[in-house]
């Protein structure tokens, strides 16, 4: 059975004082051993989706739908259950390790405290485990690192520490919220390689949140594209590269330099993403879309429809009312 580690089902999150929901009927799945990408611009709701999986929604948020982690309902879970879930099942790697690790405590404290407090391990055992973890993420001299403060480590090293901390509880599901955005380009590749290795070794389910669609396509098995709180396209990495269907995905791919092959002229997506204070009666992307049809795209909210018959909720799907009329960039562009 291909059991989902993370199952988000029709999750809608509304914050007070906003014109549109932060998340609008978001549905996504992450199975064990699967790398899933969540791609979108800033403010598209990627991070909120990940935080919902941890029960970390902002206070005062109205929510509908379900979030299951390992089959357990997160949104309805009590404080104790939530803590147990966070300590054992699901973990998160944050964007900026400088901000995500308490600057006044030592690396060793960051790694051993969860083990000592949530698992009641003694200091010795927890420190041995921390050394193991630091070695696993490729930090030299792990024993010495335990005694150091975050400001004594480089960004890349600190992100490794953050990953080690996320793995401390032996989670089955790892959420990575733009894990390489705050790092140097050369370090980004190393961190991604590390994440990939750890994911394969441990059979983790991994949700990679990024604004880089090329990166997602290169590292993920499946990709969800988000725009203004809605999933607009769902595809395998190969499908997304080969035959992107939603105009937004096409635009994103056209505005990103390809990782391989000759550089082509980049075409930016015109306009800016709609803010939380703007409501869109129809498709949220309509105002920026070259294919938008007045009277249709700005009226009707497109549903995420499977493109392949008989898809079980994981196959290629896109949310666009003019899907049939939009030519996908030909396969010859990308091998």
């Amino acid at each position: 059975m291909n059991a989902s580690l993370l199952e988000v089902d029709g999750l809608t999150v509304e914050l007070p004082g906003t014109a549109r929901p932060v998340l609008d009927a978001v549905t996504l799945r992450v199975a064990a051993g699967e790398v899933v990408g969540l791609v979108g611009e800033s403010g598209s709701g990627k991070s909120v989706t990940a935080r919902a999986a941890l029960g970390l929604l902002p206070p005062g948020a109205r929510r509908a739908g379900r979030v299951l982690v390992g089959g357990e309902d997160v949104l309805g879970a009590g404080q104790g259950r939530l803590r147990a879930l966070r300590a054992a099942e699901v973990s998160m790697v944050f964007q900026d390790p400088r901000a995500g690790i308490n600057p006044v405590r030592r690396i060793g404290d960051f790694l051993t405290e969860p083990l000592r407090l949530t698992r009641r391990w003694n200091r010795r055992r927890a420190e041995e485990r921390a050394v193991e973890l630091l070695a696993a993420v490729g930090l030299p001299e792990p024993e010495r690192q335990l005694r150091r403060y975050p400001h004594q480590l480089s960004g890349g090293m600190l992100q490794r520490v953050m990953i080690a901390g996320a793995l401390a509880g032996e989670p089955r599901l790892l959420l990575c919220d733009e894990p390489t955005t705050a790092l140097d380009v050369s370090t980004q590749a190393e961190i991604l390689a590390l994440l990939g290795r750890l994911q394969r070794e441990r059979g983790l389910g991994l949700l990679l949140i990024t604004h880089d669609v090329e990166l997602a396509a290169a590292t993920c098995d499946r990709v969800y594209v988000m725009y203004a709180g809605r999933i607009v396209e769902r595809a395998t990495a190969a499908e997304l590269f080969g035959r992107p269907r939603h105009p937004y995905t096409i635009g994103l791919l056209g505005s990103t330099p390809p990782l391989t092959g000759p550089p082509a002229r980049l075409r930016p997506v015109p306009g800016t993403p709609i803010g939380l204070d703007e409501a869109a009666p129809g498709c949220a992307f309509a105002v920026r879309c070259a294919f938008a049809q007045a009277g249709r795209c700005d009226q009707e909210v497109p549903a995420l429809l499977p493109l392949v018959d008989g898809a079980d909720g994981a196959g290629h799907a896109a949310a666009c009312v003019r899907l049939a009329e939009i030519p996908s960039p030909a396969e010859e562009v990308r091998p």
Partner: peptide
């Protein structure tokens, strides 16, 4: 973010407030 990171590690909120935030 480090407060969220603490919570994600499964710490009790009281612990995060006193040992994580206060220093």
């Amino acid at each position: 973010p480090y407060i969220a990171a603490y919570l994600v590690q499964g710490h009790a909120p009281a612990y995060v407030a006193v040992r994580g935030l206060l220093p």
